[in-house]
Design a protein around this nucleic acid. Structure first.
Length: 546
DNA sequence: TTAGGTAGTTGGTGGGTGCC
DNA sequence: GGCACCCACCAACTACCTAA
C-alpha cells in the first residue's frame, strides 16, 4: 500500500514570513529525509514542528501570492521531480488531509476587511482577556510568576479559492497512523479556538469559545477523503471545520502549554499567525494588500519571536522562583541545624556540670576523705620518722614529732576502759551507721567500720577471734592468730554501751562476736580469692612463656 | 566420763551495688 | 550486660564447756 500524501504547512523565515503548503518531497533537509521510511519521515517531520528549525524546501521559485501551494494533485507515485528554489522555512503543521492544512493556513490569515479593526482592538499579549480561552497553560504558575502570554490573534473568516479547496477534506491526520482519532484531537491547535470562532460564528465578529465544547466526532477513515464539488465548498467546509473544531476543542482545552512538545499540538501556529489576506481578496487592491501582507507577515514573525522570548522569560522566572524556594528551604534547614547544635551544646554543658558535681561529691565523701588522709598521713609519718631517725637523735625532737603526728591523726580512745584508739573521723562514720538503725545489720556495719579503722585487710584475713584452729581444717597449717584481746574487748564494750545509750537496748556482748567473726571471715574469703586470681595469672604467664 | 549445748571456723551460695 | 566486689546467710564441722 502506497504511503499517503502528507501536506505540510510552512512559513518562510526569510524576510517575507509568508505561508505555504507543500508535500514531503519538498523537504530537502536533512539530506536522508527521503531515504527513510514513511513513518520515519513523519517522525522527523514532527520533530521540526515548533522547534524553530529552518529547513530547506524545494519550492517553486517565489510564489505568486502567500497562499500559493504546491500542486497538491501530486501523489506519492507522481511526485514532482522538478527542482525549484531552495528556501528556508519552518514547519507549522502537517496533515494527510489537505483541507485541514489549508484551513489552518486560512485561519492564520484574517481578512483584510477586519485587519485594521483587529489592529485597533489588539491588546497586549499579556492581557488577561487574551489569556482567557486561548487554551494555554492550564496549570497554575508558581507564585510571583506571570501567566503565560497569549499570542492569540483575532482571525476572521476568509475566502479560499476553489483551487485551494480542490480535493480537500476536513479530516486531520497525525503522524501516528494507529492513533489517528486521539492524535487528531491532540492535533487541535491554538488555531482551533480561532477556527471555532471562525466557523461557529455566522457573522464577521469575534466569537467566544463556548465553555463546554461538544464531544469529538467519530473518526473518519482516510478512504472517506473524496473530492467535493466547489459548489458546496463553503457550506461543507464550514460544516467540516465545525466538526474539526468539535473534535479538537476538548483536547485543546485540556492541552495547555504553548510550548507543548507534542508536535501534534502544532504550537508554532500560536506564534506564527499571519494576518495575510487570501489571494482572492488581493484582487481588489493588489498593491495595498500586498504591502499589508508583507507587513503582517513581518509582524507575525516578530510576534512569534516575541512569543518565544516570552516563553524563555517565563522559564527564567520559573527557574528563579524554584531557586528562591531552594534558597528558602536551605535557609530553614540551616536555622534548624543551628537550633539542634545549640541544644547539643546545652546538653554537653549540662553533662559536664553534672560530671563535675559527681566528682566533687566523690571527693567530699567522708569515707574517701578519711582513707586518703590516713594514707597520706601514714606516708608522711614514715617519712618524718625516717628523717627523725637519721637526722635527729634528741628525745625532745622525737616527742615533738610524735605529738605532732598524734595531733594530725586526731585519734581518740574507742572506750574509756581500754587504750585502743581510733581515728575520730572513722569513729564518726561508725557512729553514723549505728545511729541509722538498731538491727543486727546496722550493728555489723558499725563494727565493720571500726575494724577497718583498726586493722588492714591483710591483718584481718590472717587473724581469728579466738585463735583456735578450725575444726574443719584438716591441713597441717597452723591456726590463725587471735585478734588483740584488748581491741576486741574495746569494740564489744563500745557497741554495748552505744546500743544502750542510743537505742535503749541492752545487748549481750556475745552478740558482737558473730559480727566480728563474720567480718574476719569475709576478709579471709576475699584474700583467698585474690590469692587464687594471682596464682591463676602466674600460671597463665608461665604457660605463655612456655 | 560422757552426752549435750555452745562457740567458732570454713566453704559455699545468692543478692546488691558499682564500674567498665 | 558482664564482671568484680562486698555482704549476709547457711550448712558442715569441731573444740570447748558443763551438767549429769
Amino acid at each position: 500500500m502506497a504511503d499517503p500524501l502528507i501536506y505540510i504547512l510552512v512559513t518562510f523565515t526569510a524576510k517575507s514570513g509568508e505561508l505555504g503548503i507543500g508535500t514531503l518531497e519538498a523537504i530537502a533537509v536533512p539530506k536522508d529525509f527521503h531515504d527513510q521510511s514513511f513513518d520515519h519521515q513523519l517522525e522527523q517531520l514532527k520533530g521540526f514542528i515548533g522547534t524553530k528549525k529552518v529547513i530547506g524546501i524545494n519550492w517553486p521559485k517565489f510564489p505568486s501570492n502567500p497562499g500559493w501551494n504546491l500542486p497538491v494533485q501530486s501523489t506519492t507515485k507522481s511526485r514532482s521531480q522538478v527542482q525549484h528554489e531552495v528556501r528556508s522555512c519552518k514547519v507549522i503543521s502537517f496533515s494527510e488531509d489537505r483541507d485541514v492544512v489549508v484551513a489552518v493556513r486560512d485561519a492564520m490569515v484574517p481578512p483584510i476587511s477586519v485587519k485594521k479593526a483587529v489592529a485597533k482592538k489588539s491588546t497586549p499579549k499579556s492581557s488577561a482577556t487574551q489569556k482567557h480561552g486561548t487554551g494555554h497553560k492550564s496549570t497554575s504558575p508558581p507564585r510571583n510568576l506571570p501567566v503565560e502570554k497569549s499570542a492569540t490573534v483575532i482571525r476572521k473568516t476568509m475566502g479560499i479559492s476553489e483551487e485551494d479547496m480542490e480535493g480537500l477534506d476536513c479530516h486531520l491526520i497525525t503522524g501516528e497512523n494507529e492513533d489517528k482519532s486521539d492524535t487528531s484531537a491532540d492535533s487541535s491547535l491554538d488555531h482551533d479556538d480561532n477556527q471555532q470562532r471562525f466557523f461557529s460564528s455566522e457573522s464577521e465578529d469575534e466569537d467566544l469559545i463556548p465553555p463546554t465544547p461538544p464531544p469529538p466526532p467519530m473518526k473518519r477513515k482516510r478512504g472517506d477523503q473524496s473530492f467535493k464539488s466547489s459548489s458546496d465548498t463553503k457550506s461543507k467546509r464550514n460544516s467540516s471545520h465545525n466538526k474539526e473544531n468539535s473534535s479538537v476543542t476538548p483536547r485543546r482545552n485540556e492541552k495547555s502549554s504553548a510550548k507543548n512538545s507534542d508536535p501534534q499540538i502544532l504550537t508554532s501556529l500560536d506564534v506564527n499567525i499571519v494576518d495575510t489576506p487570501p489571494s482572492s481578496t488581493t484582487k481588489e487592491n493588489p498593491k495595498r494588500v500586498q504591502d499589508e501582507q508583507w507587513t503582517e507577515l513581518v509582524d507575525a514573525e516578530f510576534h512569534g519571536r516575541n512569543e518565544y522570548m516570552d516563553q524563555i522569560d517565563e522559564l527564567k522566572k520559573e527557574i528563579s522562583f524554584l531557586n528562591e524556594q531552594i534558597r528558602n528551604s536551605t535557609f530553614d534547614l540551616e536555622i534548624e541545624r543551628r537550633d539542634f547544635d545549640d541544644r547539643i551544646s546545652e546538653k554537653d554543658a549540662t553533662i559536664l556540670r553534672l560530671q563535675e558535681e559527681v566528682k566533687s561529691l566523690k571527693e567530699m565523701n567522708p569515707l574517701a576523705l578519711s582513707k586518703s588522709l590516713n594514707e597520706g598521713l601514714v606516708i608522711l609519718q614514715s617519712t618524718l620518722e625516717t628523717l627523725t631517725i637519721s637526722q635527729l637523735n634528741s628525745e625532745q625532737s622525737r616527742v615533738q614529732l610524735q605529738s605532732e603526728s598524734s595531733r594530725r591523726t586526731n585519734k581518740v580512745k574507742l572506750h574509756k576502759d581500754y587504750d585502743t584508739t581510733i581515728n575520730q573521723n572513722e569513729l564518726a562514720i561508725a557512729v553514723s551507721y549505728g545511729k541509722s538503725g538498731s538491727k543486727k545489720k546496722d550493728m555489723s556495719k558499725m563494727i565493720n567500720v571500726i575494724m577497718e579503722a583498726l586493722w588492714d585487710r591483710e591483718f584481718m584475713s590472717k587473724h581469728s577471734l579466738t585463735g583456735k584452729k578450725a575444726p574443719t581444717d584438716k591441713s597441717n597449717n597452723p591456726a590463725k592468730e587471735a585478734l588483740p584481746k584488748d581491741d576486741v574487748q574495746a569494740i564489744t564494750s563500745f557497741v554495748v554501751e552505744f546500743w544502750a545509750t542510743k537505742h535503749k537496748l541492752a545487748i549481750d556482748p556475745s552478740m558482737v562476736h558473730p559480727c566480728i567473726t563474720s567480718k574476719l571471715l569475709g576478709e579471709h574469703t576475699a584474700n583467698k580469692s585474690r590469692e587464687k586470681l594471682v596464682v591463676e595469672d602466674d600460671d597463665d604467664d608461665q604457660q605463655l612463656q612456655q
